[in-house]
Design a protein around this nucleic acid. Structure first.
Length: 105
RNA sequence: GCGGGAAGAAAAGACGUCUGCUGUGUAAACAGAGGAAAGUCCGGACACCUUGGGCAGGAUACUUCCUAACCGGAAGCUGCAGCAAUGCAGAGCCAGCUCCACAGAAACAAACCGCAUGCUUGCCCUCAUGGCGGCGUGUAAGGGUGAAAUGGUGGUGUAAGAGACCACCGGUGCUUUUGGUGACAAAGGCAGCUAGGAAUGCCUUAUCCGGUGCAAUGCCAAAUAGGAAAGCUAUGGUGCGCCCACACCGCUUUCGGGUAGGCAGCUCGAGCCAAAGCGUGAGUUUUGGCCCAGAUGGAUAGACGUCCGUUCCGGAGCAAUCCGGAUAACAGAAUCCGGCUUAUUGACUUCCCGCGGGG
RNA sequence: UGGGAUGUCGUCUAAUGGUAGGACAGCGGACUCUGGAUCCGUAUGUGAGGGUUCAAAUCCUUCCAUCCCAG
C-alpha cells in the first residue's frame, strides 16, 4: 500500500535528499524508508489555480493507486509539479510518470 | 430590416464497469462544492479581552421606506447627458481658515492703462477758456490674460460713468397660499442687485462606531528547564491610540528547551420550497412541507463506456425525420450569514425607444 | 483562513495638485594605437480602468500584481 505523506516536518526532510528523479514537468527527491512506499505531492501556485492543482493531485493519486505494485518498498519520494503540468492529458500524464519512476523498478 | 436601451432565467441528466475518499449509522443504506464557493470591499452573528471619564480617530450624507445591520436595496425628487427608451450624480464655500501654478492691473481684495474732473508758485505757447507734466478726486463703460474676471439686452441719466434709475429676461434671499408623509413642485408678494471655483482641501452640521478575531475560545492527553542573557526599572512599567483618575508590580527583546495529538466550537440557519394575504416596490405576515457538505497537507473523485433528453453546428430530404460532430466557460466550501465588486461559455426569453421600408 | 503593506525609466531612488528630477546601467560621439577613466549628447518611466478638478504620480473608487505576519 501507499502511505501518503502529510505532516509538514516530514516534507522538510526532502530538502536534504541526495537523489532526485527528473522529467519534463516533474521532479521527485528520493529518500530511503524502511518497509514502506511513501509518496507526497507538492504543487505550487505557479502551476495553476485551485481547480487545476486539485485535479492534478487527484490524477497523480489515481495513477499511483493503479501502478504502485510495480515499484519496490523502502522508498520515500515527493513528487513536485512544475509549470505546465496541469495542461497534460490523462494519457500524457501516465506516460510521463512511468518515465519518471522507471528508475525505481 | 437596421441601430440603441433595460430586465430576466440557466450554469444539463440517468445508468454501467474497474479503482478510491469523507460524514451519519450496529448494519443495510443515505448524503456529499458555486453562482460567483473568488476578491476580502462593506455590514452583522458568535467568542474572548476591557476599571471609569474625556479627547483623538473612523464611517455615512437629496427624500421616504425596506432590512438584524450596511459604502446594501426599493420607490420617488432635483440636476446633467441623450431625438428617445434610458443612464449618471447628489448635505453645507453667506460659520471660519486655506488654495487657485503660468499669464494678468486684479483670483475676492482692489485699481495698471483708460475715461472724466479739481488744483498747480513746474515747463511750452502766450490773446487765452490751450498743450505737456505733477499732486489729488470720481468711475468700473472699454483693454487683454486666464480654466475661471462680479448678471444680459435696450433705454434714461451723467463731467465721465455705473442697477444710479426704468422695461423685459436670468439668478439670489425672505415670505404667503395650494398639493405632497417628505425631498420638492405650482402660483403669487416683498427686498436687494451679486453672490467666482475647490469641501473625493482643512472643516461645519447630523447620525453611527470599544478592541481583537474560529489560528477567537473552552476541555482532555502528551512533553518539559517557570532556564539563560540584555535592556528599562518607582520621576518607572503594565492595564487598546493619547490624557486624567484608579488599580496592580514587574515589563520588553533575544537565545535555549518541549509539543507537533484529540474533542467541543462545527453546521437548524436573519435557513430552503410552495401557496395565500398585504404592499407600486424592496419586502413582510400566516399556513403547510423539508433537512440540504462539514474536510483539517484538507474528502466530495480518476479512467473507460452506454442511453435517452435538451440545445447548437454541418450535411441529406418536399416533409416527418435521418447521419456526423459538439455539450463548454469562469472556477473548488474551510466559523456562519446579508450585500457589493470582479471573472465567464454557447445559445435564449421578454419589454421599450429611434430611423427606414412594405401592407 | 484571517490580518497588513507596497507598486515611479533596465536597477536604486526624489517630487506642496501646476514642465516627472537624480545616480548607475544602455546607445552615439570626442579623447586614445586599443581598452578603461573623463567630457558631450541621446532614448527610456508614474501597475490598469473610472471619477473629482481648469489641471492628477499625488485626491476618491474598482481591479491587477508582488511581498510580509499569525499554527
Amino acid at each position: 500500500m501507499i502511505r501518503w505523506i502529510k505532516p509538514h516536518y516530514e516534507y522538510l526532510e526532502f530538502a536534504s535528499a541526495a537523489h532526485c528523479l527528473r522529467s519534463r514537468h516533474f521532479y521527485a527527491p528520493l529518500l530511503p524508508s524502511e518497509g514502506e512506499f511513501a509518496v507526497g505531492i507538492t504543487i505550487s501556485k505557479k502551476v495553476g489555480n485551485a481547480v487545476k492543482r486539485n485535479r492534478l493531485k487527484r490524477r497523480i493519486k489515481a495513477w499511483l493507486r493503479g501502478h504502485h505494485s510495480h515499484y519496490p518498498l523502502g522508498q520515500k519520494l515527493n513528487i513536485i509539479a512544475r509549470k505546465g503540468a496541469a495542461e497534460l492529458s490523462w494519457q500524457e500524464l501516465g506516460l510521463e510518470l512511468q518515465a519518471l519512476l522507471g528508475a525505481l523498478a
